[in-house]
Design a protein around this nucleic acid. Structure first.
Length: 532
RNA sequence: GUCCCCAUCGUCUAACGGUUAGGACACCACCCUUUCAAGGUGGAAAUACGGGUUCGAUUCCCGUUGGGGAUGCCA
């Protein structure tokens, strides 16, 4: 492995979205390539016409790009070893099959799927191996030729050695793996419809694309010996292998949609930052050292090594991902945060002073459901709104940079997902009054005497001689609580509900500054009407 | 059924024969505090079980148990 250039590949089959497991495989391949100044090849394994869809290919490419995983060869970038869609490599597979035929390394099998199913069942009940019993391998060559000429449906199977042999290879993660050819059967290389199977194309393409290291899911560990035999038959040198153990759900079983989102896109829509997902995924089966948790892509590519990949299957923990995302949101800085938040503001048509109490109410009430679903009405927030609104919001952010930048620290450490931000800040965007949370009103406004508190506060805050700044507001209101002989907490919570609509909110004085004098006074009056 | 692989706190993991078994998420307590967060301090929490090998095993070997994968004209 020393002097050969590192060439690795990520080879998804476009049968669905890019999910967490696939993303991790892609990430490790990418990190390994970058760590060794090698190349990452992206190859689309669309050999199964039944299940492959072009739309899925596009989604996978999008998700990889979003994560920041660039490839050196593959769809949309080209390369010297293409084409990179297996569906466009049929000639190559045909040619390779031809070679195998000439060497008599393969034979046609005329068993139908139905017959195979029966044979399998019989073998199982008789406690024999379920693999193919090689009956078509006995067919005399002349007879086989005649049946082929007659157009009889057939598959092509690889001839495995009749004398038992032990196959072994050294996996970079699992170490030496050995298996006897007795455990294998003459597997199918080409289906009866002429399309090649996975084991065949994976081997051919990895060889032809000069792949040096195959880093892939653990579910292929048992396939590797078969592929070794194929490399041998085709006269290719096999690559090195590194198998990644599976990612499991919280129930210890294979990760599935049942336990929440598994698609990379879902986390994107929820407002997980690509850097956070990358960091989390990197740690799911690999460690930098004995203590480092937060690191960026550059650090990863600098330190990534196959030797530190864990053999244990890892349970995917969304909680830790959310924690990590919050850590990244806090580090983002105002400008980057706003850029990331903008699509969400856009989705709800939220910009400063352009939200009615009714709209705010809807946003707040949908919050939990949206976050749970990971979607905004089932659509990505990124493409939802008309350009005019987008322009308005861009313009607003530009015109009120200071205001938006002041919102950033208030919200960034209170959310784990960008999708949570709108509901938590809607009160800041309201033009006039805000919707009131019933429980908060009950607890903080209803108690007798609150009406008087709010009236006193309104009176205190009305004169324009009072500077509308954090320090002066706090000083004045603290003094008011002393004058009225109420605990600061009592006064502040009443004000909070009056101004924010909820007894849980970002800090009060910062909020007052952002809301401004006139809307604040209006909200105090509205709350006064509800207060006891 | 057969074969292959795996096994450290609830979870992700560190340790590559000698450590009070370390870190992180989550959890609990306290501090800070106008709520919620964030932050700080502290706490509880693990080597699946049974045999070996060794002066000494989380670490090496065997078995048991548990889990995963393969055994497809899926990948």
């Amino acid at each position: 492995m020393s002097d050969q250039p590192v060439r690795v590949r990520f080879a998804p089959s476009p049968t669905g979205n890019l999910h967490i497991g696939g993303a991790r495989t892609a990430l490790y391949n990418w990190a390994f390539a970058r760590a060794h100044a090698g190349s990452l090849i992206l190859r689309i394994e669309d050999t199964d016409p039944e299940r492959s869809q072009a739309a899925h290919t596009q989604q996978i490419l999008d998700a990889l790009r979003w994560l920041g995983l660039n490839w050196d060869e593959g769809p949309e970038v080209g390369g010297d070893f293409g084409p990179y869609m297996q569906s466009q490599r049929q000639d190559i597979y045909r040619r390779e099959l031809e070679r195998l035929k000439q060497q008599e390394a393969v034979y046609p099998c005329f068993c139908t799927p139905e017959q195979r199913e029966m044979q399998r069942r019989e073998a199982l009940t008789a406690h024999r191996p379920a693999g193919y019993d090689r009956r078509c391998r006995q067919i005399p060559a002349q007879q086989a030729r005649e049946r082929l000429a007659g157009g009889e449906a057939h598959t092509w199977r690889l001839k495995l050695p009749l004398m038992p042999r032990t196959l072994s290879f050294e996996d970079a993660v699992f170490g030496v793996v050995e298996v006897s050819t007795e455990q294998l059967d003459d597997f199918i290389l080409v289906r009866s419809d002429g399309s090649p199977t996975y084991n065949f194309v994976a081997c051919v393409d990895d060889a032809l694309m000069r792949i040096s290291h195959v880093i892939r899911g653990d579910d292929h560990l048992s396939n590797t010996p078969k592929q070794l035999l194929l490399y041998e038959a085709l006269g290719y040198t096999p690559p090195r292998f590194a198998h990644l153990s599976m990612i499991l759900g919280s129930d210890g079983r294979r990760l599935s949609k049942r336990q929440g989102a598994t698609a990379v896109q879902s986390y994107r829509h929820l407002g997980v930052l690509p850097a956070a997902l990358l960091n989390y995924l990197a740690l799911l089966g690999w460690s930098l050292d004995d203590h480092t948790t937060l690191f960026d892509a550059a650090t990863l590519t600098q330190h990534f090594s196959l030797a530190r990949i864990s053999k244990n299957p890892a349970v995917f923990d969304p909680q830790k991902l959310l924690w990590m995302n919050q850590a990244y949101l806090k580090k983002l800085g105002a400008a980057d945060f706003l850029a990331a938040w903008q699509p969400y503001l856009l989705f709800d048509g939220m910009w400063r002073g352009h939200l009615s109490a009714k709209q705010a109410q809807i946003i707040i009430s949908q919050d939990a459901e949206r976050v749970q679903k990971g979607l905004f009405d089932g659509r990505p927030p990124l493409t939802a709104s008309p350009t005019t609104i987008q322009d308005a919001i861009c313009a607003d952010i530009e015109a009120h940079t200071h205001w938006y930048h002041a919102v950033y620290p208030l919200i960034s450490e209170r959310i784990q997902l960008l999708a949570e931000a709108n509901a938590k800040t809607a009160y800041l965007f309201c033009a006039g009054t805000v919707p009131f949370d019933e429980a908060s009103v009950e607890k903080c406004l209803r108690p007798v005497g609150t009406k008087a508190l709010l009236a006193a506060a309104e009176q205190l805050l009305t004169p324009t001689s009072l500077s509308w700044q954090h320090a002066s507001l706090e000083e004045a209101l603290r003094a008011l609580s002393t004058t009225l002989d109420v605990k600061p907490r009592r006064l502040f919570q009443a004000l909070r509900v009056a101004v924010c609509g909820n007894m849980v909110s970002p800090p009060l004085f910062e909020s007052l500054v952002l809301i401004g004098r006139s809307p604040t006074l209006e909200r105090l009056r509205a709350a006064g009407d509800l207060a006891g």
